[in-house]
Design a protein around this nucleic acid. Structure first.
Length: 124
DNA sequence: CGCTTGACCGGAA
DNA sequence: ATTCCGGCCAAGC
């Protein structure tokens, strides 16, 4: 299994992540589902490797991509250099952490069409 | 060419 | 809750 056109795939990932609203988060697997699957890749292979390819794309993000809004399927920030910074950026956006985890049911972006942070809704 | 490392995920132990 | 593992990848050395 290989990614037929990495640069094209990466561009699609970045384009999607740029649409994630301030104060919202998405998971790697979710990003893989929201963008178009490369036609040459089998559905099953994409399910297994898509999220990892998204991670690779994020590791090469241009400066204008809000990389901090992409977290893992457990609602956590993976242990890696920059993790502390990522949490700081998200908290500055109003994303709430319980322990080391974000409540995806509240903060996860559902996709293009939904915008704005959920936080205002809990102010009362 | 071979080996290591890594911004994943879901299921099993 | 936590760790381990398969999947058999991509990039760097």
């Amino acid at each position: 299994m290989d990614l037929p056109n990495p640069s094209l795939f990466y561009s699609a990932v970045w384009a999607l992540v740029r649409q994630v609203p301030y104060g919202r988060v998405v998971t790697y697997g979710q990003v893989a589902q929201l963008i178009d699957k490369p036609a040459e890749v089998d559905d099953e292979d994409y399910r297994v490797y898509g999220p990892r390819w998204v991670g690779e794309a994020m590791a090469a993000s241009p400066a204008d991509v809000p990389w901090q809004r992409v977290i893992n399927a457990q609602g956590k920030i993976s242990d890696r250099p920059g993790a502390k910074k990522q949490r700081e950026l998200l908290e500055r956006e109003g994303v709430l952490f319980l322990k080391d985890r974000v409540d995806l049911k509240i903060d996860q972006w559902s996709g293009p069409g939904q915008d704005g942070p959920p936080r205002q809704q809990r102010l009362f």
